[in-house]
Structure formats: C-alpha cells, structure tokens
Design a protein around this nucleic acid. Structure first.
Length: 290
DNA sequence: GGAAATGGCTGACGGAATTC
DNA sequence: GAATTCCGTCAGCCATTTCC
C-alpha cells in the first residue's frame, strides 16, 4: 500500500507510545441517539493500534433520550484519560460570529451557548442562514476554512445542523467553559482529557479507503465497502477481534465503523503533535484532524 | 404498541450533456 | 475548446407508514 497522508502503518504505534487511550466518537444530534452515537476505544501497540471496544451510547450508558445520553457522555468524557475525537463541527465560519465574540474560541462558545440556548437545529440553521445572507458572501451555507480541504459540509447544513447544535452547545461549551477538558488546537489544557474534531470520511480518504457509499443495508456493495474498509484498516496496522470486525461490517448505519476510524484519526493527530494539517486554519472556527 | 422501514427535506458538488 | 446548464448523488434527521 502506498503512503497516504502523514502515516506509515507503524506510525500509528509511534503516535502514542506511553500514552493513554484513544477514543473515536461518532456523534449524533438525533432526539434518541442511543443507537446512533458510537464510541470506540483503542490503545497503541508496537505494530499499530489495537481496538479494545466499540459500543453504542445505549450500550455504554443505558439511556436513550438525547438529554440523558449527552449528560452521560459529558460525565464519561471527563472521567477519561487520553484523547477523544468527536465528529461534529467545533465552530462556525468566522463571518457568522458576532465581532464581540471573535476574541477567542472560548468567547465563541459562550456566545453560541447563549444565542442558541432555546433553539432547535432548524432554528439555529435559519438564524445562521440569515446571518450569511446579511454578510458580504454570495453563498448561504458557508464553510469554515478547515471544511474545504477535508470535504466536510457546512456546519449548519440540514445534514449537520443537529450535530453542531448539540455538540457545541451541550457537550463542548459546558466542558470547556467549566475547564473540565482541553481541546486541540484551540484550548489545550493539562486538566482532563483532550478532545479534538475528527471527520471519518476524510480519514478514510487519507488512508486510500472507500469514503462514501459504505453506509446502508439495501445494496450489497455497501456491505462490500465496509468489508474493504475493515480489511484496509487492518492493513494499516489496526487490529481487532474477528467478532468486532464482523460487527463493524454488519452495522448498516456505518456509525460503529466511523467510531473505529475515529480512533485512527486521533492516533494520526497525536502523531503529528496536533499540528493543523492545512495552513487554511482559523483558530476561531476549529480544525478537523483527518 | 413498539420496532423497523421508508420518504422527504436542502444545498453543494461532480460529471455529463449542451451550447456558443 | 471553453463556458454553461442540467442531472444525479450524497449527507443526518424526523415524520409517517408498515409490519410483527
């Protein structure tokens, strides 16, 4: 296999020698996200990365409603040692943020949590679209600097609006403003675990693996792509039990697989010292690690 | 009644087709 | 050949429908 992105296979192992556990969290803003949020944990080995566990939020926490799941997730996160990657936007395009909230990423979090305290995903999207139309830009669904190179959607598209709202308002803001976690590269801290933004599709692309049409259970080729991804991850030095591999392939939503890919993204980010991969990175908007 | 499946929503993007 | 237009695809979530 040719080298893609930053890593050789054993680079994943070099990433975190002597460090703790990596977590990949496939996030969801659904009303009942117990079966949509998946959490994978992995440890670096001499040869790569060993996936230790992969389970849905429902299995981990035993609750189903959004508020209960996100509360449990926050509690669970602050009790971790290590690095956790979450796949939702950690910020918004700079032009949409009020000038008096642009001083720092923490200022943005404070503004966001207050501005959308009582909003649902649709209301937040409507507000941000109006801000975009009122700006000097031509488009309505604006992207952050980090979104372009990674192929990510706008943080408030109809696809991502719920993830961004609940991820930033209900997970990041309370944890960061409460100084319970650090976030790379905007707000590193010695206290608590380190969080970072990931985007599994970009990681798959960087590894030269199928990065689309692997979610779903209606077409046989979707399952075949999941099989190809699992085989490809193993070729990159990711090890796991056959039972877990079978589960990643069988889970038609692709969320379990995304969480495992997320651990790889975290390993790559650690290996690079959390250096932003693109020069086009705005510390107010966030940074995707692929 | 509860679980599972299905359709629809919206905008961006890439590739193909068409026009000049 | 270049520019423009058109069309299909993709994403996550919710509401509705279907099935057991």
């Amino acid at each position: 296999m040719s080298s893609a992105g930053c890593c050789e296979p054993n680079h994943l192992a070099r990433a975190a020698r002597g460090t703790d556990v990596y977590y990949g969290i496939d996030f969801s803003g659904a009303a009942r996200p117990a079966t949509d949020i998946w959490i994978a944990s992995a440890r670096p080995t001499d040869d790569g990365l060993r996936i230790e566990r992969c389970a849905s939020a429902g299995e981990r926490f035993g609750v189903t409603d959004r508020a209960a799941v996100l509360t449990a997730l926050r509690t669970w996160l602050v009790e971790r040692d290590g690095v956790a990657g979450l796949d939702f936007s950690f910020g918004l395009p700079r032009v949409l943020v009020p000038r008096d909230a642009r001083g720092s990423w923490s200022s943005f979090l404070r503004w966001f949590a207050a501005a959308f305290a009582d909003s649902d995903g649709k209301a937040m999207q409507t507000d941000l679209k109006e801000r975009a139309r009122a700006s000097d830009t031509d488009d309505v669904e604006l992207k952050r600097e980090t979104d372009g190179p990674t192929g990510a959607s706008s943080p408030y598209s109809f696809i991502t609006r719920y993830q961004t709202l609940h991820g930033v308002r209900d997970v990041l803001a309370p944890l960061v403003l409460g100084e319970r976690v650090g976030v790379e590269p905007m707000a590193p801290s010695e206290i608590g675990p380190t969080l970072c933004e990931i985007y599994p599709a970009a990681t798959l692309r960087a590894l030269g693996l199928p990065d689309e049409r692997y979610k779903g259970g209606t077409h046989e080729n979707e399952r075949a792509r999941r099989e190809e991804i699992v085989a490809g991850l193993r070729a990159w030095g990711v090890t796991m039990d056959d039972g877990l591999a079978d589960r990643l392939i069988a889970e038609t939503g692709g969320d379990a697989l995304d969480s495992v890919v997320g651990t790889v993204a975290v390993a790559r980010a650690v290996a690079n010292g959390f250096q932003p991969e693109s020069a086009r990175y705005d510390p107010l908007e966030g940074c995707i690690y692929a």
